[in-house]
Amino acid sequence: MAAFFLAPNMLIFGVFVLFPLAVNIAYSMTGGNALFLTNREFVGLDQYERLFDCGNYLDRQTCREDLFWTAVWNTSAFVVLQVSLMVGVALVTALVLNRDLKARSFWRAVFFFPVLLSPVVVGLIWRWILQRQGLLNFGLYELGFEPVNWLVERNWAFAAAVGVSVWAHVGFYALILLAGLQAIPKELYEAAEMDGTKPGRVFWRITLPLLMPNLLVVLVLTLIRAVQIFDEVYVLTGGGPGTSTLFLTQYIYEVGFASHLRNPGLASAASILMGLVLIVLTLFQLGIVRRNDRRGGK
């Protein structure tokens, strides 16, 4: 009987998720230029071999697919920086929003608003602000500073990619943390006050441990999102300058679809590798959720 009710969902899941996934794995084991799977030649694990063909993994120039490794290193650096920044800013924002501010609802809306924007809109807005003749440089020039070509200087472009994606999503995570903060009973803080606890200690010994389940959820969500970063960055920098903001998803897109050096098999192999990383992170998240459920009801 249960199977009967599950069937429609399983059907959709099978058709739209499992089947394309299987086809993708099949693609990753074929070579050639033909677009249709049946016209392609089976090459086993050649594509994966090609991706991992490196003299020294730390020096991407020794790699056969140097752009793939560039994307891997860029994405890794991005994940570390962006996730730390995102979780940190979300936490601070949630702590601030938790206070009895005037017009609290207004401020919450302000922080959440960018989350509602489409990523292309976000990328475009910031491109107009940061480009050589953009709003920021205009402002700097008026104030007497030297304008900087933000999107064409390697480190600034990377920082912009991190900053813009944090700006676009931090409101969402701040809201999750805010919910967690509000779930902490006020009386605990009063008891701590009666105990003569300093604010720092209140944060580290009471707030943070009780917020930990939410923090972990936010951490894993941001990790998963960060690995897949594409939309805003593609519009903002197009992967440039050079390849300094080329991330995995863009690499896969270019190799698989956009570039004239189209190689669907290689793109599929790269996407499978990326998928494996995401599976690990997702399992991690599932573990956390289960642990929270078990702990639940304090």
């Binding site: 752009l67 070509n149 064409v152 920098t237 197009g238 992967g239 300058p241 863009q250 270019e254």
Partner: peptide, 14 residues
């Protein structure tokens, strides 16, 4: 003009 060639990656047309 640096912006045109350097500001994108891969085969993106600008």
């Amino acid at each position: 003009n640096k912006d045109v060639w350097v500001s994108a990656a891969g085969t993106t047309y600008r």
